[in-house]
């Protein structure tokens, strides 16, 4: 989540600080220029690199991806460029595959459980850090470290910590009289293992966003509440939770969209195995295309497009919610 989470912050702060009617002065509002004036062409000129970039490096790869999914691309056809058109056959194959049910269920578990824990722990920490105690700034900054590390670094560290024979986790469990757990190599625990690592990775993102959300709740509210004799618990449920609702919703939705895309962590720790036991849709797509000796791009592209559709549905939900708040 290193990459994904940061751009989310930019977006969230952009959304929160964006054009709300009250904030900027009237001189900052848009003034429509009549079309065809030199001004318009200048604007297009400055945006031209981006427009060209989006067309060549976003639209074209996506188009190629759709094309891959509706053709039967064997390795040979891939190099020669003469695949057979197969329509939605590849999609049907994906849906009928034995791995599909497992991958769908794993994806649901992976995203929902990861996000639930990331959010709960992130919120608890944000509330904890809201009180300005000694060193709180430094400690809060240190919490960001997992977020900054390259994913391969965190994932391989976790893989070694969860190693069956030499891992520190099993060593602690055995010291307390427990039995050795084959975290990454047993089908029963592989998914749990990658979820644990992913929760750890996502806590900083949740902490940062929820903390900045808490900063926007006026402290007078808490002061008034404690004057009225409200307990800390009452303050949390009656003030923090309701006033944090918009920020929470955005955090959860972005978390969902970004967890859906996760490949690296799972791939590095378990490669989706053993068998299909920790296979998610994104990892499945990666495995079909690049993970085995024999690349199978057409089904991989079909799975990828399915992922885009799921992400977009929730993305639109996010945009609608954001728009709703900007209006209110």
């Amino acid at each position: 989540m290193t990459t994904t989470s940061v751009d989310a912050t930019g977006r969230v702060s952009g959304g929160a600080a964006g054009p709300s009617p009250a904030a900027p002065g009237p001189d900052r509002r848009r003034r429509r220029k009549p079309p065809g004036t030199p001004q318009t062409w200048t604007a297009i000129g400055f945006a031209a690199p981006l427009l060209a970039y989006l067309a060549v490096f976003y639209a074209y790869p996506l188009w190629r991806n759709i094309e891959l999914s509706v053709h039967d691309y064997t390795v040979r056809a891939f190099v020669l460029g003469n695949p057979e058109f197969s329509g939605f056959e590849k999609y049907a194959e994906v849906f009928a595959s034995d791995s599909f049910g497992t991958a769908l269920l794993n994806t649901a578990l992976f995203t929902v459980v990861s996000i639930a824990f990331q959010y709960a722990i992130g919120l608890a920490l944000a509330v904890f850090f809201r009180a300005n105690f000694r060193l709180s700034g430094v400690l809060r900054a240190l919490f960001l470290v997992p977020w900054l590390l390259p994913l391969i670094v965190s994932a391989s560290t976790w893989a070694w910590m969860l190693n069956s024979e030499n891992g520190i986790v099993n060593s602690v469990i055995e010291a307390f009289g427990g039995e050795q757990i084959n975290w990454l190599t047993s089908p029963d625990t592989a998914l749990t293992s990658v979820i644990i690592a992913n929760i750890w990775l996502g806590i900083p993102f949740n902490l940062v966003i929820l903390y900045s959300g808490l900063q926007q709740i006026p402290s007078e509210m808490y002061e008034a509440a404690s004057l009225d004799g409200a307990s800390a618990r009452q303050q949390f449920w009656r003030i923090t939770v309701p006033l944090l609702r918009p920020v929470s919703a955005i955090t959860l939705l972005l978390g969902f969209i970004y967890t859906l895309k996760v490949v690296d962590v799972v791939w590095i720790m378990t490669t989706g195995g053993p068998g299909d036991s920790s296979l998610t849709l994104a990892v499945w797509s990666y495995r079909e295309a690049f993970g085995t000796g024999q690349p199978d791009f057409s089904p991989a592209a079909a799975i990828g497009n399915l992922l885009i559709v799921i992400a977009l549905v929730f993305g639109f939900l996010h945009l609608r919610m954001q728009r709703g708040w900007e209006k209110s």
Binding site: Y58, Y60, A289, F290, F297, A301, I308, A311, G315
Partner: peptide, 19 residues
Amino acid sequence: LLVAQMIPAVVMAMGFYAI
């Protein structure tokens, strides 16, 4: 641009690979 950020990297990787 918002939508672009939602596209899974693995999908982009396949597109780029093909190109």
